[in-house]
């Protein structure tokens, strides 16, 4: 038994509850921070970060520590890690469309590139991952495939979140068909719809 696993078992056996590092991954604008805020508000009464329609609003990993979730007679304690969106491209000109000055747009793009690198580095340091996908968009993208492939290579439990089910064009079947090897939970981070199913899944699949 590897030492880390043994340590986890030992702590669990003697009653010290393990803190799960729960990483929220996905492309920009999938609704990661909205969902992180929903989870955090439900259990701590405080949000994790600011939400915006501008891509790459989250440019550093945002944490909410020791969030205690009680579900189905089980209590889990987790550190919520809201990751910057992972992308293969960042064009400062895109930010100009949202009214940023050229200088601010370039600065935001620079920060966003660092955020993507930080999110990738964190792939090695989460215990369970929520991969958030916008259920109104084609899920079979290289970014989603790369995130899931890297988590699978590290044997990290993955729960796919089909987000934005409150929108009429939501198509969760698309996601289930693209990634049949992982549990898919349909939620709306915005309205909180089905979020209890997500808590049950976190309790069931986390390690």
């Amino acid at each position: 038994m590897p030492f880390r696993k043994f340590l986890g078992w030992f702590k669990g056996f003697f009653g010290k509850k393990k803190i799960i590092r729960l990483g929220l991954y996905g492309p920009p604008n999938a609704g990661k921070t909205t969902l992180a805020n929903k989870i955090s508000m439900d259990w701590t009464g405080e949000p994790v970060g600011k939400v915006s329609e501008v891509p790459h609003e989250t440019r550093e990993v945002q944490k909410k520590e020791k969030v205690t979730v009680k579900v189905g007679g089980k209590t889990i304690v987790m550190n919520l890690l809201d990751m910057p969106g992972i992308s293969t491209k960042i064009d400062f000109e895109e930010f100009l469309q949202y009214g940023f000055s050229a200088e601010d747009a370039k600065q935001r793009a620079k920060e966003a590139t660092k955020g993507v690198i930080e999110a990738i580095k964190w792939l090695e340091n989460v215990d369970t991952a929520l991969v958030i996908m916008d259920s109104t968009r084609d899920p079979y993208t290289q970014v989603n495939i790369t995130i899931i492939g890297n988590l699978e290579a590290r044997n990290i439990p993955i729960i796919i979140v089909a987000n934005k089910i409150d929108l009429p064009e939501s198509n969760t079947k698309w996601i289930e068909e693209a990634f049949p090897q992982h549990p898919v939970i349909n939620v709306s981070g915005l309205t909180g719809s089905n979020v209890n199913d997500l808590y049950s899944a976190i309790a069931k699949y986390s390690k």
Binding site: T88, V116, I117, T146, G149, E152, A153
Partner: peptide, 12 residues
Amino acid sequence: STEEAKLIEETM
């Protein structure tokens, strides 16, 4: 998958 992640990092 590891190379894809590395490629994204280097691209950034």
